[in-house]
Design a protein around this nucleic acid. Structure first.
Lengths: 217, 217
DNA sequence: ACTTAGTTCGAACGATCGTTCGAATTGGCC
DNA sequence: GGCCAATTCGAACGATCGTTCGAACTAAGT
């Protein structure tokens, strides 16, 4: 009778550790998130109506509100899940790798691979970064800051190792710009895959940041 | 009696060639565009209501429609003017400069200087790039393509001169990403001015693209 | 002062927005 | 088959959306 509408309730663990299934509720929620992501990607957060989201996910308008209490929380769930996943994947990939240049290349490859494999979700994450308010905004911003700090750390390691001098802030934000801008132009029928693009961007960025440490600023 | 509402009518030339004034109509229109740009920047195109635009520009809701026939056309006027201006400035700055590296640095400086001097307009241009439809979209897309082609041309000159080999497409789009992403992070109280940022980004990009032409891809 | 064209406005239009509510339906368990 | 909780829905809420219309106001020329 009482609708949960929070999507934060504890996932009921089955006795056997099964893959994927989770509860019916969680599976349906995930489906809705996927369809909503597609609509948000195409029309933008403000431009997408709850009625379009209901049509896309094959559920009635009122039915959606059984799974989340507001449109804003829906966007929050999408962004949180997407961002958390990409950070997790990064950390797991970085484990065991010590060479600092290689670690930066892994960062770039991880970002681009996930971006191109989940274009809609990553566009929603990048493009709708300012629409969440207060608590919702703060939570996503915290993940973003952590992700940013990791990248700065990788760059600082490289700087220390090779005695380089440049602004980590500008370098990291330039790198994010290069990578995130991809949602505005990437065409799978024309452009290479994530691996090739990561190599090209990695080449430009690393050579640009590494070569000629001739300036004192 | 009949409202023009097109903003394309011929600007009435005064007998003496005066600076700035134009007609009353043109001045008022420019004011509205400025205020609307600020609102679009803050709330997004879809998120901004005509009533907010009227409040911001100090004109009644109905009064706005004397100057343009739709909200979409208002966005079009902003984007067209902004994009046309930045292209014009670029062309004038490139005149007489022959060194191909210097020409690329001028491109970067021109872009960033205009971006930071007109942050709101450039954010509206970058962030709301997909909302216009049909004819409106086509006109702005044409300018964008021209701007893109100019940048590819500059890079191809450098490639030919120095016998470099890399994908102009990926390089140019990476450069645009670096530069355009700035609207998501630039803080005038923390970050350097356009000139310094242009130097840093120019360094990274040019060294990255220039150094080590060791690959055959 | 009178005319005329240019400019602004209050009030309202139908459409659509996000959200709610109580009833109907479903799925799993005895 | 009967029961309870989980899930879904149709219908409607008030608010707000972009746009329109005719009247009112203003500036400029005679």
């Amino acid at each position: 009778m009482v609708s949960p509408a929070t999507a934060t309730r504890v996932v009921a663990r089955r006795s056997r550790t099964q893959a994927v299934p989770a509860t019916r509720y969680d599976r349906r929620l995930a489906e809705i998130l996927t369809h909503a992501t597609e609509v948000f990607c195409k029309k933008g957060y403000e431009g997408a109506s709850m009625r379009e989201l209901s049509r896309a996910s094959g559920m009635s308008l009122a039915g959606l509100y059984y799974y989340f209490e507001s449109k804003e929380r829906l966007l929050y769930l999408i962004q949180k899940h997407t961002f958390t996943t990409i950070v997790q994947r990064l950390k797991s990939r970085l484990q065991g790798v010590t060479d600092s240049e290689e670690r930066i290349r892994i960062f770039i490859l991880n970002h681009l691979e996930y971006f191109l494999a989940n274009q809609a979700a990553m566009k929603v994450l990048s493009h709708e970064a300012e629409v969440l308010k207060n608590g919702f905004a703060a939570e996503v911003a915290a993940i973003k800051r952590e992700y940013y700090r990791v990248c700065v750390g990788l760059l600082d390691d490289l700087k220390r190792e090779r005695g380089l001098q440049f602004s980590s802030r500008i370098a990291v934000l330039s790198l994010f710009g290069m990578m995130n801008w991809i949602y505005t132009w990437h065409n799978p029928r024309v452009d290479a895959d994530a691996c090739a693009i990561a190599r090209e961007m990695g080449d430009v960025f690393l050579r640009g940041v590494t070569a000629g440490d001739k300036r004192g600023r």
